[in-house]
């Protein structure tokens, strides 16, 4: 099976975020990591390849720094990578990102395309499904299991409140992967070495420009949300905090 995995670089989970001068995006001088569900998407792609053979290709769009996530994917076992490299990609809405990906892979035929189920920064939860529509492929979202079947694949979708559902679908298909689908592997030293010699194709914005449009939605203002609940801050030394909390637990919460 030939599998494409979309991997996004996002600010690290506990990176302190600061707004830029115009208040429309964050200041980019933070540390970055792989969007968590994308790491699981990659893991699942590698496992499918191990079972059924084929090829795993990682793709990302973003500035030079985002090459790091492709390096990680190659070190873990992806065969090659595609980097749509430009600062402008950071500001793309999901529609434009999907269109850029569709344009970048127009000469290739993938059996499966994986994305994460949503990004930690924008959280659109849309890019994969839009890509499926642009390519004319069927899709399924929030996937927790994938098995090859005679006619295509059988996937397990996670539904709300602990429910699940199996869905049979033909290939090619697009799947959005949920965190926890399997255990993540670590890159090995050999893997990291080998990654240096694996092909990484760079795609400039100009090469996909004709497939793009203006964004259809725009962030007018980004800000720290206002608190609506009255919260009492409990501070002091750890011992003082413990005493204050127990006092509240006894007299106000009444659980002691």
């Amino acid at each position: 099976m030939k599998i494409l995995v979309c991997i996004k670089q996002v600010p690290q989970k506990d990176a302190p975020l600061k707004l830029n001068e115009t208040g429309t995006w964050i200041r980019e001088d933070v540390s970055y990591e792989i969007n968590e569900p994308d790491a699981y998407a990659l893991e699942e792609a590698l496992r499918q390849k191990e079972k059924h053979g084929g090829e795993v290709v990682a793709i990302t769009s973003g500035p030079a720094r985002s090459q790091q996530v492709l390096r990680e994917a190659l070190a873990k076992g992806a065969d090659r990578a595609i980097h749509l490299e430009d600062n402008a990609f950071v500001g793309f809405d999901a529609y434009n990102t999907a269109r850029a990906f569709a344009a970048a892979i127009k000469d290739e035929q993938f059996d499966l395309i994986f994305t994460g189920l949503q990004s930690d920064d924008y959280g659109y939860a849309q890019t994969g499904v839009i890509l499926a529509e642009l390519l004319g492929h069927p899709h399924a979202t929030i996937i927790m299991q994938i098995e090859k079947s005679d006619s295509g694949i059988r996937v397990k979708r996670e539904l709300e409140a602990g429910y699940f559902q199996f869905v049979d679908m033909p290939l090619p298909a697009v799947l959005t992967i949920q965190s926890g689908i399997s255990k993540l592997r670590y890159a090995t030293l050999i893997g990291i070495k080998q990654a240096k010699n694996k092909p990484l194709r760079k795609v400039a914005l100009a090469e996909v420009q004709s497939a793009l449009s203006d964004n259809l939605q725009k962030i007018e203002r980004l800000y720290v949300p206002q608190k609506t609940k009255k919260t009492e801050i409990i501070d002091g030394s750890p011992n003082e905090i413990a005493k204050k909390l127990v006092e509240r637990l006894r007299n106000e919460v009444r659980v002691l």
Partner: peptide, 20 residues
């Protein structure tokens, strides 16, 4: 019309408009 949505896992919020 602006629609407010959470970003960065709820750490920030954004007012978003339609342009098309």
């Amino acid at each position: 019309l602006l629609f407010t949505r959470q970003m960065f896992q709820g750490k920030l919020a954004a007012d978003v408009s339609f342009t098309g």
